[in-house]
């Protein structure tokens, strides 16, 4: 589904990703872990098309198509969704107008008001989300948990095929993390070809979303790949010990 080949990315003339390679097949769940500042969030923004990041070489292919020439909205319309670490607060733009515009754009036709309300109410209810939030300004004054639930609500409404979760667990209490992660996993079970890329520091999220592969990012590239147990080892021993073992070998 997603193939990243020899990707090099600079920000403010600083090399962040350096010959980065990753292949994610249909239905797979991958995890990227790594110390702060190694480029995990950069990777997510580059896949989504943030033009603050300069791709100096390499390719990102999504279902065989080159993503790099596409604008951010075109990538979203292809079925890519980035659940952001810090979802934007946009004062004045109502959450409802935003959600309906997004659904209409992704579906390529205006979504009827009745259908929209039904889907919103169902999604909000499944997320134990205060329905009042649908009518407020987008993310404005939302708590950390409410913002993340609003991101997951968007997944339910926009029905992406490739989901990037950039530190979904940051700013979430244990109950909200459980609700958000269980809803994402349920979505994946209902849409089994959906692939997920999780960027995280903490394996707690894996109690609910089961990864197929865990990668450690360091120096702008993946330095180690394993399964769920790698994440547990990182939590137990830290990145230095886990990656040092490989270097020593």
């Amino acid at each position: 589904m997603l193939t990243i080949e020899n990707l090099c990315v600079k920000v403010d003339n600083k090399q962040i990703l350096n010959n980065f390679n990753l292949t994610i097949n249909k239905g797979e769940t991958h995890v990227i872990m790594g110390p702060n500042g190694v480029g995990k969030s950069t990777l997510s923004r580059v896949i989504m098309g943030d033009n603050n990041y300069e791709v100096t070489s390499g390719n990102i292919l999504f279902e065989g198509d080159n993503l790099l020439p596409l604008s951010v909205d075109e990538r979203a319309k292809k079925g890519i969704f980035l659940a952001m670490q810090n979802p934007m607060e946009i004062d004045g733009v109502s959450n409802q107008d935003f959600l309906r515009s997004a659904m209409s754009s992704v579906n390529g036709k205006q979504v009827g008001l009745y259908d929209f309300i039904l889907q919103c109410e169902k999604g909000a209810s499944e997320l134990s989300m205060n329905k009042e939030l649908i009518h407020r300004s987008l993310n404005t004054g939302f708590s950390g948990g409410e913002k993340k639930k609003n991101e997951v609500l968007q997944i339910k409404l926009l029905k992406p095929r490739f989901i990037i979760l950039d530190e979904l667990d940051s700013g979430l209490d244990v109950d909200s993390l459980k609700i958000c992660a269980e809803n994402i996993w349920k979505y994946k079970e209902e849409n089994e070809n959906t692939s997920i890329l999780i960027i995280t520091h903490h394996p707690k999220i894996f109690d609910y979303i089961k990864p197929d592969f865990v990668h450690v990012l360091e120096g702008g590239k993946i330095v180690k790949t394993g399964d769920y147990s790698l994440a547990l080892n990182i939590e137990k021993y830290g990145y230095n010990v886990v990656t040092k073992e490989d270097k020593d070998e």
């Binding site: 909205d73 997004a102 754009s105």
Partner: peptide, 29 residues
């Protein structure tokens, strides 16, 4: 730019994102 990126990352085109922000600012006041 961050607001635009967020809206566009949900599939909303550049022009429609601008309109959404303009409308939101004008109408919410």
């Amino acid at each position: 730019e961050d607001e635009l990126f967020y809206l566009m990352s949900r599939g909303i085109s550049y022009d429609d994102s601008i309109k959404l922000i303009v409308k939101g600012n004008v109408l919410s006041n």
